[in-house]
C-alpha cells in the first residue's frame, strides 16, 4: 500500500506540560545524569537558575506527549507494527526549569516513500509560559513495507 501524504502540514492542538522538580530528578536519574543543577536546588540557584534545570533531552518528556496525537492519527496512517524510530533532532534555544509550563505544537512535516519504506517526519515546537521558544524537535519514523 503506497503512503498517503494527505496529512502533510496538519497541525494538532497544543499540549501544555507543567515541569515539576521531581519529574526532572526522576528523568535525570533514569538517564544517568549527575550534574547537581538537575537535582539540587541550591546548586541550580547558585548557577543563576530560579529552580532545578531540566536536562536538554527532557525535551522528550514534554515533546512526546504532544507528538502522540499526530503519530496515532488515522489520517497519518503509520503502521506501528512496522515502525522504527529512524532519527531524531533537537534544537534548543532556552533552558527549561521546574515551574515552567511548556506548550508544544506538533506538525506533520513530511511523508515520503523511498525504497519501499515510508519516512514520516514530525516537528514539535515548544514555547514556555512567556511565549519564548525553548526547543524544536524533528522526529523521523521509518515504516517498512509500504509498497
Amino acid at each position: 500500500m503506497p503512503v498517503d501524504t494527505n496529512a502533510v502540514g496538519k497541525t494538532y492542538p497544543p499540549d501544555v506540560y507543567a515541569v515539576g522538580r521531581e519529574k526532572i530528578r526522576e528523568y535525570a536519574a533514569a538517564v544517568g545524569e549527575t550534574d547537581p543543577r538537575y537535582f539540587d536546588l541550591d546548586a541550580a540557584r547558585a548557577a543563576g537558575y530560579p529552580d532545578l534545570v531540566a536536562p536538554p533531552m527532557f525535551a522528550v518528556v514534554y515533546g512526546m506527549r504532544a507528538l502522540a496525537p499526530a503519530a496515532f492519527d488515522p489520517e497519518v496512517g503509520m503502521n506501528f507494527a512496522m515502525t522504527v524510530h529512524g532519527g531524531q533532532e533537537f534544537r534548543w534555544e532556552r533552558m527549561v526549569v521546574a515551574g515552567d509550563e511548556i506548550s508544544t505544537t506538533a506538525t506533520v512535516k513530511s511523508i515520503e516513500e523511498r525504497g519501499g519504506m515510508g519516512f514520516y517526519v514530525f516537528e514539535t515546537a515548544s514555547t514556555n509560559q512567556r511565549g519564548e521558544s525553548v526547543c524544536t524537535g524533528i522526529w523521523t519514523n521509518i515504516v517498512r513495507g509500504v509498497s
Partner: peptide
Amino acid sequence: LQRLSVQF
C-alpha cells in the same frame, strides 16, 4: 548544547 541530531 544548542543542537543534536542522530540516526538510530
